[in-house]
Amino acid sequence: MSQDTFHAVSNFFTGLGESAAAQKELARYDQTILFHIGNEQPFCIRIAGGKVSPEIGGATDKIESVDDFLRLLLLKTDAETIAALMAGSVTLGETLLEGTVDIHGNIQKEYIIAWLSRLFQRTER
């Protein structure tokens, strides 16, 4: 099973920490983003205090408490779409509208979606 996407996504998020503006944006929320990319093994990007820790597996997709719900974002997509998001050729909002990205609780976690969208676009609020 390929781990190409894991490495690409890990590099993207760890690379964000090199820019002061993106670092400030990263530090806005603590969040574990659990990626399900096609048939690849799930992986997560943990963001805490602005620090990024990628991990294969590493997070359960079970939400059993308010804390789980607030700290965990479940994102399903395909390798092509995640590559386009990282390249900035499409926004997270556009992919949600197209249905190529699915986020659990997208009505309740719009503040995290907007934050993640800015990270993908390398912009800040």
Binding site: L92, G93, L96, L97, E110, A114, S117, R118, Q121, R125
Partner: peptide, 12 residues
């Protein structure tokens, strides 16, 4: 509305 959803999802 697409514009409203984009404003919420991409711009918060």
């Amino acid at each position: 509305c697409v514009a409203a959803l984009t404003a919420r999802w991409d711009h918060g």
